[in-house]
Amino acid sequence: MNKTALSPIYNTLDWVLAWAARIGAVAMVALIAITMYDVLTRYFSIPKFAGLNSTMVQESEYWAHGILFALVMGYGLTKQVHVRIDLLRDIMPRKVQYAMEIFGLLIFLIPFAYIGTIYCYTYAVKSFVDGEVSPSTVGLTNIWLLKSTLVMMFGLLLFAGVSQFLKAIDGLLGNLSTENEARVLGGGH
């Protein structure tokens, strides 16, 4: 692997994104457990414990969904799991592909993720200040926690965009390893 001045930055960002995704995997396990618990208690008349009710359990399911997506979205971008339309781009020279990647990241993804982070931060703070709770009288409280996951999602997406941008710069300069080249340009499906 070629070592450049940029590689420690994007390797660190990728490490943070990988750890966030591992935590997101725990949310997936929680989602499975909560869904199984919901099905068992609802269809087999098993009593709920600890003062939980059906609304709380169902709201917990979408909380787990939210946490899962928030924590894995940025990591997914670095692993090229997003949809691409590579038909025209793949016939272009490598340097043009990197230039297109840089353009897309600078014009679309990074500003979008930054704006999303700022707006969601104010959204979560307002929820915290207002003491927002579920619209259901028997639902969950502290909705600001769920809304804070939106801040994490856009923040991690911003990290991923910066990581991909730095890798694309290295690629444009001819300093990117083969492994990272596949993580920037995708392809080879």
Rank of each mutant, 00 (worst) to 15 (best):
168 A>T: 10
99 A>Q: 12
85 I>C: 09
51 G>P: 07
134 S>V: 01
109 L>I: 15
88 L>A: 09
109 L>H: 08
80 Q>N: 13
164 Q>H: 07
126 K>E: 15
85 I>F: 14
100 M>H: 03
59 E>L: 09
97 Q>A: 10
123 Y>N: 11
93 P>E: 08
106 L>Y: 06
110 I>E: 12
135 P>W: 02
62 Y>R: 01
159 F>R: 10
173 L>R: 12
179 E>G: 14
172 L>P: 01
55 T>K: 01
56 M>I: 04
62 Y>H: 07
110 I>C: 15
158 L>V: 13
131 G>V: 01
126 K>I: 02
79 K>D: 05
59 E>F: 05
179 E>F: 08
126 K>A: 09
65 H>P: 00
170 D>W: 15
117 T>R: 11
118 I>L: 13
81 V>H: 08
99 A>K: 06
175 N>A: 14
67 I>V: 15
79 K>I: 02
82 H>L: 08
71 L>I: 01
182 A>K: 13
117 T>A: 14
131 G>N: 00
69 F>Q: 12
80 Q>M: 12
84 R>P: 03
89 R>V: 02
51 G>S: 10
87 L>R: 09
145 L>I: 13
76 G>M: 08
149 T>L: 13
92 M>N: 01
100 M>A: 15
144 W>K: 00
169 I>D: 15
78 T>E: 13
176 L>K: 08
173 L>W: 01
75 Y>H: 14
109 L>T: 07
92 M>Q: 09
129 V>Y: 04
117 T>F: 15
179 E>S: 14
96 V>K: 10
167 K>P: 14
72 V>H: 04
129 V>D: 13
184 V>Y: 05
171 G>L: 09
130 D>S: 08
158 L>W: 11
152 M>D: 09
78 T>K: 06
123 Y>S: 00
91 I>L: 12
141 T>V: 01
55 T>N: 02
119 Y>F: 04
138 V>S: 03
140 L>E: 00
138 V>H: 01
104 G>A: 14
83 V>G: 04
133 V>Y: 00
79 K>T: 04
91 I>E: 10
157 L>P: 04
102 I>P: 07
76 G>D: 06
